[in-house]
């Protein structure tokens, strides 16, 4: 991944990460193709992030459809600067293979979609950075807050929408963040 820079010199001397950047987390993840990566590997694009789990029957399908709605409304010229990231809160069930299948079923196989899974402690750490609440209430069910977050290309939290997600607001924030980073 290349660093998004505004000036050529910066490519030779990448700026240090902001202290509040999510890329400071050194947790390791796998995506829907089984590739190992760090969060830092997502640096350089504006990120829209949500935490879900694939066997969720209640809120997650709504979150997924919100994410798709957001994706469809991103301006053409912004598209290549945005990654949509879905992070599993159920790493036990949501293996890379399972995420791959989920992505296919939901027509989220294009390159802008990133699905991530890790282990329990990294997942909990990530959820806490997002100020997400969640609890395993049965072997197959979690209850969790519904939050869609936007991060800048440097990993700084720009905004969060909770509960009733205003899709247009998120799209506007995305656009502003992409423009700001140029």
């Amino acid at each position: 991944m290349f660093l998004l820079t505004s000036c050529e010199d910066k490519q030779k001397h990448p700026e240090p990460l902001p202290s509040d950047s999510i890329f400071n987390l050194s947790s390791q993840w796998k995506n829907q193709y089984g590739d190992s990566l760090y969060l830092k590997d997502l640096q350089g694009k504006t990120l829209v992030v949500v935490m879900i789990y694939t066997s969720c029957k209640t809120a997650c399908p709504i979150l997924v459809s919100k994410m798709k709605s957001i994706e469809s409304k991103i301006a053409k010229k912004d598209k290549r600067d945005v990654s949509l990231v879905l992070v599993s809160i159920d790493p036990e069930t949501d293996t890379p293979a399972r995420l791959h299948e989920f992505a296919k079923t939901n027509q989220m196989s294009d390159p802008q979609w990133v699905f991530l899974t890790s282990n329990e402690s990294s997942t909990q750490e990530f959820a806490n950075v997002l100020s997400m609440k969640y609890k395993k209430i049965s072997p197959i069910d979690f209850s969790h807050s519904n939050i869609i977050s936007v991060f800048s290309p440097d990993g700084q939290l720009v905004s969060q929408e909770e509960g009733a997600i205003d899709v247009d607001k998120v799209v506007l924030t995305l656009h502003e963040t992409v423009q700001k980073s140029k």
Partner: peptide
């Protein structure tokens, strides 16, 4: 060290090796 809150999980399903939290930093 595993920070497992539940009884032993099936490690085979766990795609990423548990790393010490403190190891993250230095």
């Amino acid at each position: 060290m595993s920070i497992g809150l539940m009884s032993c999980s099936n490690q085979e399903n766990n795609p990423v090796e548990e790393k010490s939290f403190a190891d993250h930093f230095s």
